[in-house]
């Protein structure tokens, strides 16, 4: 590179330290560590993991267990946000899926088929969002707001299809997917792992991630390159719909009832927060699946810790807001640039 004489490689240990401190994972990891540290001090048994009745028990397992639905929604959200979009309808999709499951079980369908129908409905929801955004070119926040506001109503209407007097069901098959366990490990974690892996492979082991980030980063440039932006955006909302749908299966099977009014309420906000804590920008152009997961864990660890710490639940939201704010501040590019300058000065 004859023209790059002013370019020097960073090799010294000081710069490795700097690299660690400017790595995007550092602040969520520190936040998580701090939360656990406080937990460890307040309740010494916090990290205990026992085996009870052939399955794992303990606060850490509980955090993972409870985080699963949000995590599902959040990884789908990360993909949509990568396209410069947003999917506010995920909570509504969960409600619709819960209602559809209850309805079809009441109608007597085989439970395997019920699962397929539920996921198909979730995909249709994603298709609808994709249509509004990619084809009609409606701004994502408005486009998905439509399903967000109408979705829970649709759920209630589905409840009415079978009278709606008793919207609960029993299904060993579906409940197995949600609250069962494979060996020592909760089934929902295993299934989440499979979905996460599949999505990660799609994003990072095919070119899908690159094309999607190009579409999100600069739509006009992506179009000139010849990328089928419409198809890419469609796929993103489909993925988000599917992930929300699976979260709906997990939640509905857990509560074995269809409660469209409150199931998965505000999950979209937690999911968006998780993406942002994970360093994703709402301006689009980047997908960090692993980091998003870290964001989900920060949020859920915080919630669980506040509950186990005996702090009055009123404080829950306030403490959560403060922690989230701090992490976001630390993630901000300006602050990081300032920190970088500090390091550059301290270790010239």
């Amino acid at each position: 590179m004859k023209h790059a004489g002013n370019v020097e490689a960073e090799t010294q240990p000081a710069s490795r330290l700097r690299a660690i401190f400017t790595h995007r994972a550092i602040w969520p990891v520190i936040a998580l560590a701090l939360i656990f540290l406080v937990d460890g001090i307040i309740s010494p048994g916090f990290f205990q993991i026992r085996v009870v009745e052939g399955r794992l028990f303990g606060n850490l397992i509980d955090i993972l267990y409870r985080a699963t639905p949000t995590a599902l929604v959040a990884i789908g959200m990360a993909v949509v946000i990568g396209t410069k979009g947003i999917d506010l309808s995920v909570g509504a999709i969960i409600a619709i899926v819960g209602a559809v499951i209850t309805w079809r079980i009441h109608a007597g369908d085989p439970h395997g088929l019920v699962l397929l129908i539920a996921l198909a409905v979730a995909l249709v929801c994603g298709l609808w969002n994709g249509f509004l955004v990619a084809v009609l070119d409606i701004q994502p926040i408005i486009a998905t707001l439509i399903l967000m506001t109408s979705g829970r109503g649709i759920g209630l209407m589905i409840n009415l299809l079978y009278g709606g007097t008793n919207p609960s069901f029993t299904s060993p098959f579906l409940q197995g997917l949600s609250v069962g366990h494979i060996g020592l490990i909760p089934t929902r974690l295993v299934l989440f792992g499979a979905i996460f892996l599949a999505l990660w492979l799609l994003v990072r082991r095919t070119a899908f991630g690159l094309l999607l980030e190009a579409v999100g980063g600069n739509p006009a440039a992506a179009r000139i390159v010849g990328i089928n932006a419409r198809l890419v955006i469609y796929s993103a909302y489909l993925i988000s719909g599917f992930c929300a749908g699976w979260a709906g299966v997990v939640l509905a099977a857990d509560t074995h009832t269809s409660d469209p009014v409150s199931i998965g309420l505000y999950v979209e906000l937690d999911a968006i927060l998780a993406v942002v804590i994970g360093g994703g920008s709402l301006a689009g152009g980047r997908i960090y699946l692993g980091m998003t997961l870290l964001g989900v864990l920060v949020i859920q660890a915080l919630t669980t810790s506040i509950l186990t710490s005996g702090l009055p639940p009123e404080y829950n939201l306030v403490v959560k807001a403060v922690v989230v704010l701090v992490v976001l501040l630390l993630q901000s590019a300006n602050l990081r640039a300032a920190l970088y300058r500090m390091f550059a000065r301290a270790k010239p």
């Binding site: 095919t206 070119a207 899908f208 690159l210 094309l211 980030e213 190009a214 980063g217 600069n218 006009a220 440039a221 992506a222 000139i224 390159v225 010849g226 990328i227 152009g285 980047r286």
Partner: peptide
């Protein structure tokens, strides 16, 4: 406006067209 994807790396920007041609 129509050329670079600013957030993506030099490598990703350079391979973008060829990768699109090859397919996902």
């Amino acid at each position: 406006a129509e050329g670079i994807v600013a957030e993506l790396s030099v490598r990703e920007n350079i391979v973008l067209a060829l990768q699109t041609k090859r397919g996902v």
